Amino acid sequence: MSGAGSSVKGKSAVLLLAHGTPDVLGEMAEYLSKVTGGRALPDEVVKELQHRYALIGLRETPGVEAPPLTKWTMTQAYLLEQALGAGKVYVGMRNWHPYIADVVNEMRRDGVTHIKAVCLAPQNSRTSVGLYRKAVLSTATGIEVEFVAGWAESPLLAEAFAKKLRPVWAEACEETGQRVPVLFTAHSVPCRTIMTGEASVAGARPGTPVQDSPDPYPVEAKRTAQMVAERMAAVGFQEKDWFFAFQSQGVSGGPWIGPTVEDTLKAIKAEGHVGVVMQPVGFLCDHVEILYDIDIAFRESARQLGLKLWRAESLNDSEVLVQALVDVVSGQYKATVDEVMVPA
């Protein structure tokens, strides 16, 4: 499945881009090889990730319902298509079915001549958005591509997160009888990703492209968090009430950016707090980094520190998120957009 609903009207269509996730546990090794660019991971890593995915519901055989990331991404595409009212919204995944290349070819067969590509990763990073861009352009020969490289500062995106955060923060404060801090998170990336061109040359592996500017990702991730915090002010939320950390550092080796969630939880406990509310602002729907990393692993880390952990619901089928996407696609929100390209 690469989209939903009506047929393409005209020659322009929206392509939503996401990470992808395996459908069954037996696909884990192949899936991870896509994530690492073909580099095989040790068996113990594959088995550990199979264990984590099993805990969030992935099975040995296909179930009635798709895995959370697939289910919610397809739902978001359907809701966006309905909100736009015209044209088909396609979904392409970088690391699993439906692959971006297959979906772009489908769009070509459908007569699409202009693609508006939007990453469901609002903060621009070379390890995410940059790879999506490469995947689209490598197969979109002869098709105009308008690629949205970032929409981290969308006011409606911030409001979508704030709407999910308000009730759980109020619940945590009422239950504890004190102000409970919020820990905003985004997915960590390798340190080499955010280095300047000069630093990259010094520490790069042979063949690594030289970057001539810092990666905007950590700044954009924290800016999204700041905007959510600002929208919480109406319910008494203050600057001192929030922290930020990068979660889910990878298993591929080398240093990844921090601070980590684990270290930040220790700092929160050291300040005398009895609980924490977590909200990942770099993710738009439920998947393993939320359902396992936060709901299971970080909850246990917090428990061992004597902290109760709450989590704001993921955006998933949020109406406000869909409107944010409408604004990005329509140009109402001035996202960071690459100029229109026609790959040769």
Rank of each mutant, 00 (worst) to 15 (best):
G85T: 03
G85E: 03
G85A: 05
A86T: 09
A86Y: 01
G87V: 01
K88Y: 02
V89H: 10
Y90M: 05
Y90V: 02
Y90K: 05
V91P: 12
M93G: 10
R94P: 04
N95V: 04
W96N: 11
W96A: 10
W96K: 13
H97Y: 14
P98C: 05
Y99N: 10
Y99M: 14
Y99R: 15
Y99D: 08
I100R: 05
I100D: 03
A101T: 09
V103S: 06
V104H: 02
V104P: 04
V104E: 05
M107T: 00
R108T: 00
R108F: 01
R109L: 07
D110L: 04
V112E: 00
V112W: 01
T113F: 01
T113V: 07
H114I: 00
H114G: 02
I115K: 03
K116S: 11
K116F: 08
K116M: 12
K116G: 06
A117I: 02
A117D: 03
V118S: 11
V118I: 14
C119P: 15
C119Q: 07
L120C: 12
P122T: 10
Q123A: 14
Q123Y: 11
Q123K: 13
N124Y: 12
N124L: 06
S125Q: 08
S125C: 13
T127K: 11
T127D: 11
S128Q: 03
S128D: 04
V129D: 02
Y132E: 02
R133V: 01
R133A: 04
R133C: 01
R133G: 00
K134F: 00
A135Q: 01
L137M: 10
L137D: 04
L137E: 07
T141C: 01
G142V: 00
G142D: 04
G142W: 01
I143A: 01
I143V: 09
I143E: 00
I143C: 00
E144F: 00
E146T: 06
F147D: 03
F147M: 08
F147L: 04
V148P: 08
V148Q: 08
V148I: 14
V148N: 06
G150S: 09
W151C: 09
E153D: 15
E153I: 05
E153F: 14
E153Q: 15
E153A: 15
S154M: 07
P155D: 07
L156E: 09
L156S: 07
L156H: 08
L157T: 03
A158W: 02
A158M: 06
A160L: 07
A160T: 04
F161T: 10
F161L: 10
F161N: 07
A162D: 06
K163C: 12
K164D: 09
K164E: 13
L165S: 10
R166K: 15
P167V: 12
W169M: 12
W169H: 15
E171S: 15
E171F: 12
A172I: 09
E174P: 11
E174F: 12
E175A: 15
G177W: 06
Q178E: 15
Q178P: 10
P181T: 06
V182A: 14
V182Q: 13
V182M: 14
L183E: 06
L183Y: 11
F184D: 11
F184N: 13
F184W: 11
T185W: 12
T185N: 14
A186S: 15
H187W: 11
H187C: 11
V189H: 10
P190T: 02
P190Q: 01
P190I: 05
C191D: 07
